[in-house]
Simulated scan of single mutants.
Amino acid sequence: MPNTTKPVLIIGGSGVVGSKAAWFLRRLHPDLAIAIGGRDRAKAQAVAAEIGHASAEVVDLERPDLGLPGNNRFGAVAVFVKDSTLNTLRYSLEHKLPYVSVSSGTFEIGPEVALFIHKPDRAPVLMASQWLAGAAVLPILHFASAYESIDKIHIGVVLDEQDMGGPAAAADYERLTTVSPAALIIEDGKVSWVAGEEGSGRLRSVDGVDVSAQAYSPFDVISLAAGLNARSIRFDLAYGESASRRRGAPYSTEIIIALTGRKRDGSFGTSHHEIVHPDGQAPLTALGVALGLERLLGLDGAKPTVPGLYLPESLIEPAYYVRRVQEFGARFTMDGGEGVMAPSMAIPA
C-alpha cells in the first residue's frame, strides 16, 4: 500500500512551478500530506497555508542532511531546482524515498546516473528533464499508437520570453543553452551533435507565423530514440513571442509535433499535432511532476514503484497523461482540427 501519511517534500515548492505542483497534487489527492521546502521559511509557509494540509521546511542544499530533521519524516522528494551538490538525491537514496528531478540537461546526467548505480536498490528515481516534464514525449507516444513504425519526429516548442518563471527556471535556461554549445539530435539513425548554423532552424507557430529556432536537447530526444527507434529526431526551441501574445492576449506555451511514418492502415504520411496551454509552461511542468509522484507512490491505485531508474514514459501511461493534461487546461489540435477536450480545471494565478 502507498505511504500517504508521510508528506511529499517539494524542494522549490514556494517557486512558480513548484507551488503549482503542490496545488495540483492537492487537487488530485486531497488527503495527501505535503511539505513545502525552500530557503525562505515565510514563503514556504505562505504556500503551505494556501494549499492546506501542508507544512513548511527550510532546506539547505549545501548540507548532506539538507538541514532537515534526522528522522525519516517524508514519503517522497521532488526537486524543482538544479542541485549541483546531488545532496537531494543522496538524501533520498539514504532514506529510501521516491525521487523526481526536472532540471538536468542531456549532457549532464552522468553524476546522477552514477550515484544511482552505486545504490540501485534504495529507491525509485524518476529523471523527468524532458520538455516540461513529459509534455511532448508522452503525447507523442500516445499519437504514435496510430503508426506501425515512425521514421521521423520533429518537435518545435515556443517559450514566450515573458514565461520564464522564477529565478531557478531562468538559471536552468541560461545553463542549458550556454554550457553545452551543441544539441543532440538523431540523424539517419545515428546520434549527432549540432551547433552554430547546423543547429539553426525555423518552426511554424500555431498561428502560422514562421519563427527562428535553435536545436535543443532535453531528454525528449533520448527518450523517443529509445522508445520509438525513429531514424530522425530533432527538437527545436523558439524563444520569443508566443502566438497568443501576438494577438494581444497573455503569453501561452506551444508544442508543435510532426510524425512521419507508416500508419496502421498501410499508408505512409505525416501527422501534425499542436498542444497549447494558455497559462504558459508552469502548469505542464507541475502536472508532469505531480503525475510522476502519483505513480511512484502508488496513489493511482496500482502498487508503488519499486527501486529503479526511470523516465516519465516508463511509468506514466501516455493516454492517461493526455487525459489529465487536458483536464488541467491544455488544448490539443491535429492537422488543423480541434482535438478532444476534457473539462478544464481552474489554475491559480
Rank of each mutant, 00 (worst) to 15 (best):
D121C: 10
V194Y: 03
P312W: 02
F332E: 03
R175S: 05
P304T: 02
S129F: 06
G15I: 03
L159G: 00
A302F: 12
T253R: 10
V289G: 02
V17Q: 01
Q45I: 06
Y216C: 06
L299D: 07
Y251A: 14
N71S: 15
H118G: 13
I185R: 13
P64F: 03
F80T: 03
G134L: 02
I233G: 08
P64C: 04
Y239V: 15
P181L: 06
L311Q: 13
E313Y: 14
L297W: 01
E161I: 12
L315E: 00
P250E: 08
E313A: 14
R63C: 11
V100R: 00
S244Y: 12
D60K: 07
P120W: 09
K82A: 12
I275N: 05
T253K: 09
R245F: 01
F332M: 02
R331E: 13
G189L: 07
I257W: 01
Y320V: 15
P307C: 05
Q326W: 08
Y251V: 10
V179E: 14
D236N: 15
E198K: 13
D83K: 00
V16F: 14
P318E: 00
A136L: 00
L284W: 01
M345E: 15
P278C: 12
E254C: 05
A330P: 03
R245T: 13
I155C: 02
A330S: 08
G201M: 03
S55E: 05
G38N: 04
A290S: 15
I233S: 01
P318N: 00
G339K: 01
P111M: 08
E187Y: 13
H118Y: 12
V340W: 08
Y147G: 07
E57R: 12
D220Y: 05
G280Y: 09
L141Q: 10
A168N: 10
Q281H: 15
I117V: 13
Q45E: 14
P283T: 09
T253N: 14
G337P: 08
F143A: 11
P343G: 12
S129H: 11
Y91H: 11
G12I: 10
V77E: 00
P69Q: 09
F219L: 15
